[in-house]
């Protein structure tokens, strides 16, 4: 049997753990996070799959999907995780890896109803989606 050599980025996992203060290896892939997530239908891969990719060092698999951007940090998964992993912090850490590379996910010029929006929505969006 021929084994394929995989490219793995363990530094990515270290970075996410450092930023989030959470241990990714604690995840038992039970799916409680996905089961309770109100945004899961818009996520391209489920949260626990994101964690698995991070522990395997598959950085591209994490970053090419939209899961961390669909997460709105509602903390439902964080309060329900049976392993006490603060999942919202992991999603934030993954977002920050991207944003700190000067990649923004929202462009002020593309918001056409700015005057209609309440201030806290705009502040919140720019805090979560720009670096």
């Amino acid at each position: 049997m021929k084994l394929k050599k995989l490219t793995r980025d363990i530094d990515f996992m270290d970075k996410v753990e450092e930023l989030s203060g959470q241990s990714l290896n604690s995840c038992i892939q039970c799916g409680t996070c996905a089961a309770g997530c109100p945004f899961v239908e818009d996520m391209e891969i489920l949260p626990e799959r994101v964690f698995k990719h991070i522990t395997l060092g598959n950085i591209d698999k994490v970053l090419e999907h939209n899961t961390m951007w669909i997460c709105a940090a509602c903390y439902t998964c964080s309060v329900r995780c049976p392993r006490d992993i603060d999942i919202a912090k992991i999603m934030e850490a993954v977002r920050q890896v991207v944003l700190r590379a000067n990649i923004d996910m929202v462009d002020v010029d593309e918001i056409d109803n700015m005057e209609e929006l309440p201030q806290l929505a705009v502040v919140g969006c720019f805090r979560k989606e720009t670096g």
Partner: peptide, 23 residues
Amino acid sequence: RTECCGSYHTVNRSDIVEKRVED
């Protein structure tokens, strides 16, 4: 009563918020 309304996605992903509101 304890589910998220879609929060700041109302700025650039109103489709997500509309689904939350419908639900």
